[in-house]
Design a protein around this nucleic acid. Structure first.
Lengths: 202, 202
DNA sequence: TCTATCTCGTACGGGAATGTACGAGATAGC
DNA sequence: GCTATCTCGTACATTCCCGTACGAGATAGA
């Protein structure tokens, strides 16, 4: 309904350009939410005018980039076995897609500034919901803590992923160890507290 | 060495204006890193030209705002008893200053875009170092985990605080419960893992 | 080979933000 | 009450980016 041939038809080189542009947009925008059309064009290796040939406005391009990232995320998500022990499932999920999820989060915050609120929710729902479902199921199974709101847990995980991506970018976290670090941190956040965290049980 | 009277002298009303401007800058910039000089002036209740009367450039104002926030943070930090059980100390620290630390983090990311790298480290060192020391001490005492790098733990805590502030801003987290939620989450991140996180021991 | 499509440079208009210049009026502080 | 200081509006130059217009040249695809 989106990517199919609603347009009359396109030449192969145009298709290739679009791919490169969207890919460049993902890269640039997830690093700098204010990346310029010109920046993106340069990274894509095309002229700025070519970009405008395919995307009329900047918001349109941002949406395309976000959409692609989310689609990729959902695809990966769909390929991960989320059944069985929730902890193990979360580990599998993180191992295969944490950096991708982090990228989506960065793009999401970039999109937040240029897309209408509704449009954003519309695109993002689905990807996030499935993570929330997994965490929710883990809570029901007794694998994950229930003393904190689900929405907080979901977002806390997001922030950790986002942070890890940033730390790598700043050279403060070894990319090789990152996956393990992320997994360990997330598990700690979701785990049922031992009982002595010093907090009232609420 | 910074705030003292290196300037010839200032009238009382000017002093008042500066205070309001810096305060407004802290508020605006921690909410939107791209806040305009005009935005800040409006919030401060003064004209834009008055702002320029005291801060020649935007980076100068950003630095002032960040500096003030960090100074406030250090002041609070200095008032917290960090001795004794590291877990309890961390709880005390978070209880009395988590939102302030979160604000500093937001300002920090705003400053990252307009201040030279060195200047930023220069200002920020001190505040962050003390948190790092506390976590390091906790590790030595066996209160906190040692399977993850200290720098990561410090930053993970920062990201969680930042995230909590954002969640409140978006109305997804009850401000009243926030303190407890933050404390519980941070304790989980720092705690020595029970032993079954599913990760190789490093 | 022929044509519709695509690339992409130059040039232009518009908007927003920064920072400067000037100056008239208010006021703190002596 | 005098004066240096401060406030702050208007106006302007500059810069940066977006988006449009035009068009010449390359190329895919038949």
């Amino acid at each position: 309904m989106v990517s199919a041939d609603t347009r009359p038809r396109r030449r192969a080189d145009a298709e290739r350009s679009i791919t490169r542009i969207v890919s460049a947009a993902r890269e640039c925008l997830s690093r700098d939410p204010d990346a310029t059309m010109d920046d993106i064009a340069k990274v894509a290796g095309v002229g700025r005018m070519t970009v405008y040939g395919h995307f009329r406005t900047r918001p349109e391009l941002v949406e395309a980039a976000l959409g692609e990232a989310l689609r990729a995320g959902e695809l990966t998500l769909a390929g991960v076995d989320l059944t069985g022990d929730a902890r193990q499932a979360m580990n599998r999920l993180l191992a295969s897609s944490w950096s991708l999820v982090a990228e989506s989060a960065a793009l999401l915050s970039a999109a937040q500034r240029v897309l209408p609120e509704g449009r954003l929710r519309e695109l993002h729902t689905g990807a996030a919901d499935r993570v929330q479902q997994l965490i929710g199921r883990g809570q029901d199974d007794g694998a994950f803590r229930t003393d904190l709101p689900v929405t907080w847990l979901v977002n806390a995980v997001q922030y950790i992923l986002h942070g890890a991506a940033e730390e790598i970018r700043l050279g403060r976290l070894d990319p090789v160890r990152a996956s393990g670090v992320v997994t360990a941190t997330v598990q700690s956040i979701l785990a049922v507290p031992a009982g002595g965290t010093g907090l009232p049980q609420r």
